[in-house]
Write a protein that binds this DNA or RNA. Structure first.
Lengths: 371, 371
DNA sequence: TCAGTTCATGGAAGGGCTTCCATGAACAAA
DNA sequence: TTTGTTCATGGAAGCCCTTCCATGAACTGA
């Protein structure tokens, strides 16, 4: 196999192959074709299960491919097929727990369909443009899943204009498909639960109102109050103004917001809807520090049902992460298979998960939760 | 541009291009060359900053490339260059918080170096083999970062044999580079902290001993006990036996383990080292339910310093996630650039972060933590 | 003036695959 | 027998780049 140069001497080392890390000598379709005594076209057809390959030939080719340990080169396939068989996921912040859970399920769904997942995560919103440029320029993906991120209309336009299908998960859009949760009705249900428990002064802790889930959850909250004839008192609402990471859906925000509410003294709420479990977590800690018992002194309901919620005994609205992931992946893959079907705007209903923090259970027992 | 068929009539639609979603007519290097009146080689050199391109020519080419909105096709480049400019990350379970944090930082580090991140996540260990096959067969990545995962020696061998550089992060290996934390000394320090606080009966809650961090942390724990002359009493140790997800480093495990320890009645420990913050979280909830106050009745130290730890007031050993990510990425990229340097086995020191749960602070105040 | 150098350039080859078209064998129908 | 028809097959062309080699212009120094 060693190269022989001009005057016939053998070079001391195999000169051009196997030298770089990562560039291991790979067996190609030509090697298989040669050994099987057929043309490359036939090998390709055999491997890809095309019809019109003689069963015997096919069996022989597959056997030889196995022997030679042949594996098709994905990049070459992509280039020839003009499909990359991979999907780009744009994710805002990996430490947002709900986002992580979504991503996990999306990964699983994509893997089942034999798609690779290329991850793009944003440290800060300012990088969004660069990232979109990058995705476009690379043409490494057949489609985009935008998770919990505020892709602006401009960016979406550019992606769509390039012919890249985009599906948003846990976010809304006027133009492209999205799979989300009915934030308004979810918040409404959460609030109604507190109302049913007899509360009149109900507070709201929210992320930044720049994010649409925050706005919708506030609307749902207000709607529930209105419909029940409860007083609508904005002094009991705290939304994040700092507009920092994760749209203010952080423990810090929840903590600070709770302190503010507790400072209202006698005017403080008897119940609280936290528009997100992480906010609820921060709020719970503030309450604990101030000696405010939950649910005795303050009833709470959250939103998301992240894994920790169970351990906090937090009553919350569960977002159906698995279903959202499956649906989003399915729609994206559909879009990628030509089918220019109608736009899909899916809003799944979140589900009220009753635990201890709302106070409607007498005794909270984690063991029950776990069983 | 429309295709003209045999008898000269114009087909109603542009027949072969722009039809499939995702297959938007892209401008290639040929288009640029044509318009600039140069050869494709020159365009390629201009774009890639090769020397030996006349400055004027280069400027013209770049201008025209811009005008035409030309962007090189990453896949074609990869095929020609025999490098993919992307890295595969094998991740065990995305809901492991520390893993997510690592991944976040790894993503950032890779992006800075212009590498793409292809994510492979494992639902269950059984799929590991398939995943490795996949990574190999695809040849879509130039290197592998294995995060917190028990890649077996067999799998590593196969990857390395193929010439794929592998770096493990948050895990150990005899054969490939790894960047990890000194689990033994970390656990030792955590335990020593409890010893300094005067505890004699110190418990241990651990994940599955099949995982090496769990073993090492147990060793460190025992070493600290031995060196201080404290009794070594295995009845106070609970390790996960179920060997379920995340090597047993789950809230469930922590919760169940704590219940067991509390059932020891008078023999129960006065202090506890939880080998992982998530275990600690589960344990804290069990304690809370049983009315065991932390730190008054039971002092606790965890391991990892996940984001929630701050809100739990959990004293813990902080793993330097940012540095681990940076180092790992740097090493991997080095490995991918030919340089067959010596194997790197890096164990960073975790840092004791003192909060409330160990009892050495009089008053816990989250506000302080946040400032 | 001429050989020798340097440098900008064009374009073929090559990377590994898919796919289309052409070919010919086998078989069916007339 | 002849004419189709069907099917298995080989291999060129094409996907879009990079890179190498050849070419020739411009320049150097004697």
């Amino acid at each position: 196999m060693n190269k022989v140069d001009g005057d016939g001497t053998c070079l001391p080392f195999p000169a051009d192959r196997n030298i770089r890390a990562g560039a291991a000598l790979a067996v190609t379709i030509y090697d298989v074709a040669l050994k099987a005594g057929v043309g490359i076209g036939t090998v390709s057809r055999a491997i890809n299960n095309h019809p019109n390959v003689h069963p015997e030939t096919k069996a022989r080719i597959l056997r030889i491919a196995q022997e030679l340990n042949y594996l098709p080169h994905a990049l070459a396939q992509s280039l020839a097929r003009k499909k990359t068989q991979s999907v780009g996921c744009i994710v805002p912040f990996l430490t947002s727990y709900f986002t992580s859970e979504l991503l996990k399920h999306i990964q699983r769904a994509l893997t089942e369909l034999n798609y690779d997942l290329i991850l793009f995560s944003l440290d800060c919103m300012e990088r969004l443009s660069k990232m979109v440029d990058r995705v476009l320029s690379e043409r490494r993906v057949d489609g985009i899943l935008s998770i919990s991120v505020g892709l602006t209309q401009k960016h979406i336009d550019r992606l769509v204009h390039q012919g890249l299908p985009v599906v948003m998960v846990d976010g809304l859009s006027q133009k492209v498909d999205y799979v989300s949760v009915d934030n308004l009705r979810g918040a409404q249900q959460a609030t109604e639960h507190l109302i049913r428990l007899g509360h009149h002064r109900i507070g709201l802790i929210n992320g930044s109102l720049q994010s649409s889930p925050a706005r919708l959850r506030q609307q749902g909250f207000v709607k529930a109050l209105n419909e029940s004839g409860r007083p609508v008192d904005p002094t009991l609402w705290v939304a994040d103004k700092s507009n920092r990471r994760e749209n203010g859906f952080t423990e810090e925000t929840g903590y600070a917001a709770m302190l503010r509410l507790l400072n209202l003294g006698k005017n403080r709420p008897t119940a609280l809807f936290a528009a997100d479990d992480v906010l609820a977590l921060g709020a719970m800690h503030a309450a604990q520090e101030k000696g405010v018992r939950i649910p005795d002194d303050l009833a709470m309901v959250g939103f998301d049902d992240i894994e920790f919620a169970k351990f906090l005994g937090l009553t919350t609205m569960r977002q159906p992460a698995v279903e959202m992931a499956n649906r989003a992946v399915k729609h994206l893959v559909d879009r990628m298979q030509v089918t220019p079907s109608a736009r899909i705007a899916l809003e799944l209903m979140p589900e009220l998960i009753v635990r201890e923090s709302c106070g409607c259970r007498r005794h909270f027992c984690l063991a029950e939760q776990l069983s």
